[in-house]
């Protein structure tokens, strides 16, 4: 499954969300904790960080990507 394009507005929702995603992978969890901190001062950098993470870790973070974007097919 490929992540949605970086300009998809759902990325902004993800990095600035108050929702608690039950992410499985340790890397996803630590990444998300960092991203949410960064998003408070620089949402664009946070989106870039999250997008690249899922793009570069397709195998490792596939389940977490499906959790965050359940309607994404690919």
């Amino acid at each position: 499954m490929k992540p949605p394009p970086i300009n998809d507005p759902r990325w902004g929702n993800f990095v600035q969300s108050e929702r608690e995603y039950p992410l499985k992978c340790l890397a996803s969890r630590i990444m998300y904790g960092q991203v949410k901190l960064i998003a408070k001062r620089d949402p664009d950098q946070a989106i870039r960080l999250a997008y690249e993470y899922f793009q570069k870790n397709e195998a490792l973070a596939a389940d977490d990507l499906r959790l965050v974007f359940p309607e994404q097919n690919g």
Binding site: A27, Q34, I38, Y53, K56
Partner: peptide, 11 residues
């Protein structure tokens, strides 16, 4: 480390 670009791109 949290602000290194691409830190999480590989283990």
């Amino acid at each position: 480390c949290g602000s290194l670009l691409g830190l999480f791109n590989s283990p």
